[in-house]
């Protein structure tokens, strides 16, 4: 797993992550007991719930990094790249959340989708950050990209509570749905807790690498002209 973006820090986190993931899968798929009500379906929740938490964490990091970039005293493209890397991982985790949620719904209620407030808002968040990533791809200088996407990220922070509130008002979570999620036993709470830890390690590992890849991408873009000129000169001297 070692690569050009690895450092002792990422290797340490990477090893911890892999060990954690092995334990997580072993426990989630085999060692943990079936739920009294949901039987095997609860195992999907072990992925679904931590994944949702991490997606939210990732988007918060994006928002904070965006603010850090916009504030003159801490302006640095590293914040911009961190925002981008975190948003990408956030979209990944949000996709996993939606997918596992859908499968869990199929197992528990027989339907792949419900129009309740939680599911709807999650899908909305997913699309919103896809839009953020699209804005990052609009081109221009690194600083233009950084400023543009930072503003978009902060506008997302503004719009998400509005959407959450209006959707919640539109389709309040019904009583029977919260009961259907069941009471969680201690062992399952423990599994979810461990899942959150393992996924957080994975998140940190991913953004450390991804942020460095983005830095290399920016450096390549900056060097692009230099390289082209150097290649031209080489051709000319032959």
């Amino acid at each position: 797993m070692s690569g050009p973006t690895s450092t002792p820090a990422t290797r340490a986190i990477g090893i911890a992550t892999i060990v954690g993931l092995i334990w997580f899968v072993a426990f989630g798929l085999f060692l943990s007991p079936d739920d009294a009500v949901q039987r095997k379906g609860v195992r999907i929740l072990y992925i679904h719930v931590p994944s949702a938490w991490l997606a939210y964490l990732a988007f918060i990091v994006t928002a904070v990094s965006s603010a850090a970039y916009l504030w003159k005293r801490t302006r640095s493209l590293t914040w911009d790249r961190l925002a981008g890397a975190s948003a990408e991982v956030g979209v990944l985790f949000m996709g996993i959340t939606l997918l596992t949620g859908s499968l869990w719904g199929r197992v528990s209620w027989g339907v792949y989708w419900v129009w309740d407030s939680r599911v709807t808002t999650t899908a909305f968040l997913f699309v919103t950050y896809l839009g953020y990533l699209a804005v990052r791809g609009l081109g221009g200088s690194h600083e233009q990209r950084a400023r543009r996407s930072a503003v978009v990220a902060l506008l997302a922070v503004l719009e998400i509570p509005l959407v959450h509130f209006s959707v919640e008002w539109w389709r309040p979570l019904h009583q029977q749905e919260s009961i259907a999620k069941g009471k969680l036993e201690n062992l399952m709470l423990f599994s979810l807790f461990v899942g959150v830890i393992v996924f957080t390690l994975l998140y940190v590992w991913l953004i450390m690498h991804r942020q460095r890849v983005l830095a290399m991408q920016d450096a390549l873009d900056d060097r692009g002209l230099e390289f082209a000129i150097a290649e031209r000169r080489q051709e000319a001297s032959l």
């Binding site: 839009g131 699209a134 804005v135 609009l138 506008l155 719009e159 959407v163 209006s166």
Partner: peptide
């Protein structure tokens, strides 16, 4: 860039549509 407008704008105006 214009093709990005629907993707960005329609999610944002969802509360207005609902309300």
């Amino acid at each position: 860039r214009e093709s990005l407008l629907p993707l960005l704008l329609l999610p944002v105006v969802a509360p207005v549509l609902i309300g």
